[in-house]
Each structure stands twice: as structure tokens, then as C-alpha cells.
Amino acid sequence: MKKKTVFRTIAVVFSVLLPLILTVSCTLNINLPKSYAMVYGISKYIDSYNEGVYPNLTYSDDDAVSVSSMLEAKGYTVITRTDSAASKEQFLADVDTINSEIRPGDLFLFYYSGHGAQSRDLEPSSKGVEPPDRDSDDEWIFLYGSIAVSGSGLTIDESRTFDDDELGKALKTIKTSRKVVIIDSCNSGGFIGNTLEIDRVPQNFTGKINILNAGVLKEAVTLYADYSKNNSAPPDISPSNALVISASGESEVTYESSSLGHGLLTYFFLDTPKDADLNKDGYVTVLESFAYVQAAINVNWNTYYLNTDYALSPHISGGAVDFVLFPAN
């Protein structure tokens, strides 16, 4: 009788309890928090120039309008700013507006389409413990008013741009722990501030993923050992601050396409509600959006530009946490 009891107990554990745990953990009845978004897109940096005339872009304002519509259809409360309305001053004012409404458990998303750039960090020591060998460059997004025509050239007003560290600080003031940033601009991979993970997708992607070799292992162990030091004042936007999806690596440019009518990342991101529910659970997460967009760019763009400077790859923040962006269509 005792033997039977033992075997019955084992049978219950393995045949009932385990599947029950699996089922419970896959339960689809979820309570999504309220979602807020600030959507910025700048095509016309210089009002007197037409769209598409350098330094103006052609589709960034359209990117923002389309992303806004998509997010509104998914239940987001959206603030949309295009061209001259998308300034740094307006960004800071919009953050205040969001903070007056958002609660700690809500989701916040910042989307940006426009110019981005990279420059050598002249004073890495000014950023506290930022490891200069890991992040010796600053990346920038250019809000309206930061680019002006001066004679035959352009001048940059840095005070009206956001660099990676400064945007990270601005995001920290938003009163929720669920933040997502999507940046469709050149060099946007530099906004990702992983302090534990090695990204094997090169920041200057030409079609090859770095192999998992002894060098990667050694670097991963080093990052683990230095985690506390690096994370005390993390560079860029750390995964615990916000999850970032970037259009390109920190050493890459990205493109907008007349045949697509959008920036590359945005064009495929707009498809995510219907195509990016990769595990068919009815919801699209940040990671699923990234995976879908990365695969779509590989198939529809990189196929034609392998081993050239035109090849590019989106990147995503590390960290163990992922957020639901919206229900799938």
C-alpha cells in the first residue's frame, strides 16, 4: 500500500502538477496597464527648405503620424509632435504632462524618427564611472531647432539635442518603471546601455553575427564582475531605465525609402500588431516587435546589401524583463 502511495505521488507530481504549472504560467487572461506615448518625428529641420532637401528628411513626420495612429488604435494615449513642434523644450513640457497623468504601473513609450549622429566623447571622465573603453562615443538625436543653416554650411546647437546619457536622465524622471524607447535614426544603437550583456550583432553590421568564442565568454565574465561598478552610474539608457529598440547599430546609418514611404524600422514596426505575435499568445511584446523588425529588415533589405555599408541591423536592450506593447490584431 505504501509503495502504491509513493508511485501515485510521483505520478501526480509529474503528470498533473507540472502541466498545471505550465498552463498557469501561460495563462492569457492578463490585465494590461494604461499606456502613454510621446511620438516625435522631424522631417523639416530647416523650414525654408523642402522636405528631402538636406538636411531635411522626407518621411520622419509621416513615420510619427503613422505610429501615432497605430498606437491610438491600440489604446494608447498619444502626444504627437512633428517638425517644428518636436523641439527639446516641447519634449520636456510633454514629459511634465505625462507625469501629471501616469501611474507607476503604466507603460510609457517614446518614439523618435529623425536625424541621429555619433561623435567622439571628448570628456569621458565627466560622466563619472562610465567605462571609456566601452562607451567612448556619444550618440545624439536632433530635435527641432538643433540644426540651423549658417552661410554655406550647417551649425548644430547641442543644447537643443539629446545625447544618449541626457535622454536616459530625462526618461528617469518619468514616474513609471515600464518605459520603452524606439529610435528610428542613424547611430541609434548607441542609446542602448547594456551593463551585463554582450551583443553579438556587430554595431557595424555587414551580414555576419560574431561567433560565441572565448573572447565573448571572457568579456561576459568581465561584465559580470564589473556589474556593480558599471551599474552605479550606467551610461546611455540602461535596461532598468527603459527598453530601447534602435533602428541601427551605434556605428551605422539607417535609411528612409521612397518605395516604403517610411524609415526602414518604422515601416516594419507598423506591421507588428498583425505580424509580430511570434508565439501566438495574442500579445506583442517589445522583444517580439524587435525580433520581427530585425528579421524583416534582414529579409527585405540586407539580402540585397550583404557585405556593404548599406547593411544594418536593429538592436535591443538586454535585461530579463520584457513588456507587452499591445494586443495583436
Partner: peptide, 14 residues
Amino acid sequence: SINEYDYTYLDYFY
């Protein structure tokens, strides 16, 4: 262990 998140090439150690 060396670990990698699904859908990514982000590797980390613990």
C-alpha cells in the same frame, strides 16, 4: 553558465 535571451544574440554570464 553563458546565456542568451530568445530572439537575440545578447549573451551574459552568471
